[in-house]
Design a protein around this nucleic acid. Structure first.
Lengths: 216, 216
DNA sequence: CCTTGTGAATCGTTTCACAGCC
DNA sequence: GGCTGTGAAACGATTCACAAGG
């Protein structure tokens, strides 16, 4: 498997959504330029990105929708269901636990945790909220690969440490703090304030034309 | 004002958080290498990034914490409070409306909207939820610069159109759909499924060492 | 000494442009 | 004809390395 850059992965995820839609609409094939138009990418980008799947395009006609949809889905999800933990049953954690798109993309929430004694033991949707104190012991059994950490900044690092000890390999971190992790553990940060700040700044800059383009 | 790349803006936002903390701890100055260590960036990146503020560093000692904290805050927030609208009072919208970091960074929620008749007119925190039908007329009065769109994909585009007509300049889009916008309008997409997919993929790739580094 | 600011080199990604194939 | 796959050029961001200044 070749290395794929992060911008390319993000675009591939977007193509996947589009291919799913095209399939549902019964489209048979799509060209790199059409797909680029829809996805906000250039035709050349689309071709280079999709090349990672190993040359599924047909010269003269474009990319066969159902083949690419299947391969791309398989490839991005990497062919299996991944168990994930959600740490924190506050607003963000609860919203995440019912996020509709996860299941469709092969993620299965196998545990929701919180520290609030009022919450621990109660049901939320299909989940019984468990105590963060038990994360490590339970994780050893559940073997989640990825954890979604949605707790206050103060406690995020210590929970991350426990999760790593329990063998987690990836953390989607919603706490506004930079987690220190061992080599080989992948952290991805999601922070609304940063997103808003970046957006606001780009708005401010929108007149400056320095680089060739900027797409969403 | 010079153009600043998106990666640089994201790092600057991170430095700001660190500088705020350093200030609170009473630190007087910090070097590019120390800051880089904390922020997960190289010393050279830190220096280039902070250069955008116009050479506040002192050779031999580093960057004066309180000066940089102030300037950076002023610069990123670009010196004013920005009114924002939240469209959608579902889980995401409600979580956003009370997101603590926004106020601190100069964002003020001036309206929360939903289409559900059961919600419209009710209070949520300090906000009375208003009908999305009235977005356009109210926006003309409230003059929000930015809208946080957290509604189902189907209705996102039409609301975006109304918002643009009402003079919005930036959209933080939580709907899993690519919004078509006029030139000059900045859209930033936030999609948990994509984030999870990217994370999972990076986990899968973590052994491939192709590029020099990969930091969160 | 120390650390910044900055040209110049490097590296990765995007774009170009066209050969190859349907 | 149309469109993909792909070397090669262009571009942007990062890193190097050092001169300038405390």
């Amino acid at each position: 498997m070749k290395f794929v850059s992060e911008p390319s992965i993000r675009r591939l995820a977007r193509y996947l959504r589009i291919f799913d839609e095209l399939k549902q609409r019964g489209e048979e094939s799509i060209s790199s330029s059409e797909l680029g138009q829809i996805a906000g990418a250039t035709a050349a980008q689309v071709r280079r990105d999709l090349l990672a799947l190993g040359g599924l395009g047909r010269r003269g006609t474009g990319y066969p929708v159902s083949d690419v949809a299947r391969e791309l889905g398989r490839w991005l999800a990497v062919s299996r269901t991944r168990p994930v933990y959600i740490i924190g049953a506050g607003k963000i954690g609860r919203a995440l636990s019912r996020y509709p798109g996860f299941v469709q993309r092969g993620f299965r929430v196998v545990g929701v945790f919180d520290n609030d004694p009022k919450k621990v033991g109660t049901k939320y949707g299909d989940f019984t909220i468990r105590s963060i104190r038990d994360v490590q012991s339970l994780a050893t059994k559940d073997r989640p690969e990825i954890a979604l950490v949605a707790i206050p900044a103060e406690s995020a690092q210590s929970v991350a440490d426990e999760l790593m000890d329990a063998g987690i390999t990836g953390i989607l971190n919603f706490a506004p703090v930079l987690l220190k992790v061992r080599k080989g553990i992948v952290v991805q940060n999601v922070d609304m304030t940063t997103e808003l700040l970046v957006l606001a700044f780009r708005v401010e800059q929108r007149h400056l034309v320095t680089p060739k383009k900027r797409l969403a």
